[in-house]
Design a protein around this nucleic acid. Sequence first.
DNA 1: TTATGCGCTACATATTGTGTAGCGTCAATC
DNA 2: GATTGACGCTACACAATATGTAGCGCATAA
Lengths: 92, 92
Amino acid sequence: MVLLDALGKRWTLRLLWELNQSWPCTFRELRARCDDISPTSLNNRLKDLRELKLIELGESGYALTEQGQALSRLLEPLDRWANQWAKNFDSN
Amino acid sequence: MVLLDALGKRWTLRLLWELNQSWPCTFRELRARCDDISPTSLNNRLKDLRELKLIELGESGYALTEQGQALSRLLEPLDRWANQWAKNFDSN
DNA sequence: TTATGCGCTACATATTGTGTAGCGTCAATC
DNA sequence: GATTGACGCTACACAATATGTAGCGCATAA
């Protein structure tokens, strides 16, 4: 339940998704990619994700850890489904 | 991005997960299963999920729609991974 | 009629997120 | 060697969201 609750926090899923698209990625770049999320919120979520050892801050920016990569990969089918679903949903 | 943002709201993932475990399920039962979430929050999330047509309120309680079932199924690998992950994480 | 369980609302309080400004650090440039 | 720019990140006032508790209106059953 721990992880499920963590993922349920605002921006967490989005951050993992963005990082899965391309990483490493700087703090400021992440902000830009996430609809200019406030730095406060971004930092809080990054802290959470670092504590969970899903991401880490390296030389050239934030990066997915091994486990972060594994998790992100599981989100891909979800994302694909979501895109299909969005198409059908909008056309109502 | 729509669905991803919706799933990122607090309790949304948890609710889908709980319903995927067993449904239909009454409002009060859902509360109990979700750590006694406040009725206000529960109702807000249920509204969201109904608008997204992922769940619906039937005779005998809240139930997953076809699409809700499809989505929940995609969460299963995630949940399995999370359980494994939690084991390794706690033993640190 | 009373009792019970239902979905849900009201409302005051607490927690969380937002938006903007800017700090301290460092590497490159003039 | 002072300046500029980008970095991660913090401060803080304000807004949005969640929480906890009480209870409403409705239905079915005893």
